[in-house]
């Protein structure tokens, strides 16, 4: 293993983003298992403020949903530029998961995730 800290993408099955209509972006974080989900869903790791900082949006506009049955965290917020306008560089908002996906995961969890990977 390299010394690079594991990212959210490393410990998730998929982190994806997409338009939810022309004025909203929604990001779905699919954790690989429930333990990972618990680490990812922990408010000390991921909350509205963290999303507001990563995406330069108003914290009050960020909507977060935690779905323990699916091991999913879902995040929605208004698009910073409306779909298809001059300064929109991502018509489907399909690449907007990346700032979140490359976020390092907490070190304690990192150890657990690496351990599980070896077991598999």
């Amino acid at each position: 293993m390299s010394d690079q800290p594991l990212t959210l993408a490393d410990v998730c099955h998929e982190v994806r983003s997409k338009n939810a209509g022309p004025f909203w972006v929604t990001i779905d974080v699919f954790a690989k298992d429930h333990e990972t989900y618990q680490a990812v869903a922990d408010e000390s790791y991921l909350d509205e403020q963290r999303i507001a900082d990563l995406y330069d949006v108003d914290r009050e506009t960020v909507r977060m949903f935690r779905l323990p049955d699916l091991d999913v965290v879902k995040i929605s917020f208004p698009r910073r530029v409306s779909q298809g306008s001059l300064h929109d560089r991502d018509i489907h908002a399909g690449q907007h998961h990346v700032p979140l996906a490359v976020l390092p995961v907490p070190p304690r969890h990192t150890a657990g995730a690496v351990g599980r990977k070896v077991v598999r």
Binding site: D28, F30, L70, V72, K74
Partner: peptide, 13 residues
Amino acid sequence: VAAHMLYENADPF
């Protein structure tokens, strides 16, 4: 199936 409620939908419920 359950995950599809998430797709292109701001609210999963």
